[in-house]
């Protein structure tokens, strides 16, 4: 199954959240991989603590693969090559966890050519053969990467694909996320152009709210009642707004609470970070675990 991670704007925590989803999924026993299609900023190596690929790889990553310069993009086995000791021990029962980084110095592509598209189709098809879950991290907004992904999946009708749209729980982000999917030149529009059925495609899109401040969370404990009431009002307004824009609860796959660790250190959160060093919140890991289960759970993706 292919999962495309996309966000309306930068700074939603798309890469770090989707990275944590694949990490959790592999702990749950699946063979998974993470493919960096954030062409303008291929820095995903940092999330997995691969210093060799912090700013992309030099050994032929996704950029050079798509341009036909290498036969296969460079692959990194996280369980073997991560610099974080905690990640270098594959727990029993865990599946493969593989990273396909972008190229160091790689940039956005200006136009979609037939050659690029063919290379992309071949890559998706091969990865789907090997992995239970293939997470493809796309650039923010209406990007070349999103366009490429839509065109490639249209040529792979037999391969299951799903889209996760990451957005923060703010007025601007909700409107932007809705526009990215339903708006002019949005996912459904461009998808239809490439032969996707818009209704079917819409069924394969879910939203993930990030950096969410829960009413009952510890962070809000010190607030005055008036402040809490005001926050409550805001939240209600946002819920109404999101429902109007078809970004409401029914289309939401999950939410990730605001966690300082995610803000300051964009990395995988291990159980150790919660239990031993206690730098991360248990709720965050639980949210990732939940997302990792739901992302492959057909019930969470039933047509609306």
């Amino acid at each position: 199954m292919l999962i495309f991670a996309i966000s309306d704007k930068g700074g939603t925590g798309r890469s770090v959240t989707s990275g944590n989803i694949v990490y959790r999924r592999s702990l749950q026993g699946n063979d998974v991989c993470y493919v960096d299609f954030d062409f303008g900023s291929p820095t995903v190596g940092a999330i997995f603590s691969i210093s060799e690929a912090e700013r992309g790889t030099r050994r032929g990553g996704t950029h050079r693969y798509l341009q036909g310069e290498v036969a296969e993009p460079h692959r990194i086995d996280i369980w073997a090559e991560s610099d974080r000791e905690g990640l270098r021990v594959k727990p029993p029962g865990a599946g493969q966890l593989v990273l396909y980084p972008g190229d160091e110095g790689g940039g956005e592509f200006p136009t979609l050519t037939e050659e690029l598209l063919r290379q992309c189709v071949r890559l998706f098809s091969r990865l789907d053969e090997e992995f239970d879950l293939v997470m493809v991290d796309l650039s923010a907004g209406r990007s070349f990467a999103a366009h490429l992904a839509l065109a490639a999946t249209a040529r792979l009708p037999g391969v299951h694909s799903r889209w996760l749209v990451f957005h923060r729980w703010t007025r601007q982000h909700i409107i932007a996320a809705a526009g990215l999917v339903n708006g002019e030149r949005g996912l459904l529009d461009v998808g239809a152009e490439h032969g996707h059925d818009p209704a079917e495609l819409a069924d394969r899109v879910r939203f993930v709210r990030t950096a969410v401040l829960e009413q009952d969370s510890a962070e809000l404990a010190g607030l005055r009642p008036t402040q809490l009431a005001w926050l409550n009002d805001c939240d209600r307004e946002l819920r109404e707004l999101s429902a109007r824009h078809k970004v409401g609860r029914t289309r939401m796959l999950g939410k990730v609470p605001l966690d300082p660790v995610l803000q300051w250190r964009e990395q995988l959160i291990s159980d150790e970070d919660v239990l031993a060093s206690q730098i991360a919140n248990a709720g965050t890991v639980a949210a990732f675990d939940d997302l990792a289960k739901k992302v492959v759970d057909d019930n969470a993706w039933e047509g609306l």
């Binding site: 062409f39 303008g40 950029h63 790689g106 940039g107 592509f109 690029l116």
Partner: peptide, 8 residues
């Protein structure tokens, strides 16, 4: 003049 990455 084929595919050139941004700033390539």
């Amino acid at each position: 003049a084929g595919v050139v990455q941004a700033m390539g």
